[in-house]
């Protein structure tokens, strides 16, 4: 039971520089890995490859020895840095949440999502409030692996701690494979059992 990137190369166009070259990474279910690197080291690209948002030019992303499924809900879910881009601006937030399945009251409670927010549009909420929805949406969809790409880089310290505590608890309960991508070494040390430093 593992999610694995096998010697993946990636670049955005034929004449563009390589963003990732021969990158390997392996994580088992129930493991918590922090990928640490300053900006510009292809952290986001790696996250998108692992969650199937992008396909590697060379190499493979394998889930339990087979490539990621193309159809259906992906067992590897990604939460991105900018929540306001990850929700449809014309949808009320109840609908945003229900896109991944029926509402999970316990998650809403844990994340501090107010009932009144469900009837609002994304532009009426702050980034910190929206990110709680994105976390709830990703956790509701099931799946065995969760990739968090700088999910708290935009947030204040308290919101960061709130969200991460919920994610860690859920990861523990469902023995999720968790990859936290961050540029904050202290945060990496706090949440992960293993740290992969891309900058060395």
């Amino acid at each position: 039971m593992a999610l694995e990137a096998k010697n993946v190369d990636f670049r955005y166009g034929r004449n563009q520089p390589w963003i990732l070259k021969d990158q390997c990474l392996k994580i088992g279910k129930g493991e918590r890995l922090a990928v640490f690197a300053p900006s510009g080291y292809g952290k986001t690209t790696l996250a998108m490859l692992l969650a199937g948002y992008l396909e590697p030019i060379n190499g493979q992303v394998l889930l339990d020895e087979i490539p990621l499924p193309k159809k259906g809900a992906c067992p590897v879910q990604l939460i991105c840095q900018h929540p306001e881009k990850a929700v449809n601006p014309r949808w009320r937030l109840r609908r945003v949440l229900e896109e991944s399945g029926p509402l999970r009251e316990d998650l809403l409670e844990a994340l501090g999502i107010q009932r009144a927010w469900l009837a609002r549009f994304p532009r009426e909420l702050s980034g910190g409030e929206l990110q709680r929805f994105c976390v709830a949406r990703a956790l509701t969809s099931g799946g065995d692996y969760l990739i968090c790409d700088e999910i708290s880089a935009m947030l204040d310290g308290i919101t960061q701690a709130q969200i991460w505590n919920v994610v860690l608890e859920e990861a523990e309960k469902r023995s999720l494979g968790l990859i936290a991508i961050t540029h904050n070494r202290r945060l990496a040390g706090r949440i992960a059992s293993r740290i992969l430093d891309l900058s060395v």
């Binding site: 992906c74 879910q77 990604l78 990850a86 896109e99």
Partner: peptide, 26 residues
């Protein structure tokens, strides 16, 4: 190319569903 469309696809929605609910209303 919007992120929420990519998210929707990874949540298992089909192209037709995305066209109907995410794209056409815009």
């Amino acid at each position: 190319s919007q992120q929420y469309v990519a998210v929707s696809r990874r949540l298992g929605k089909s192209s037709g569903w995305i066209m109907l609910y995410h794209l056409l209303p815009h």
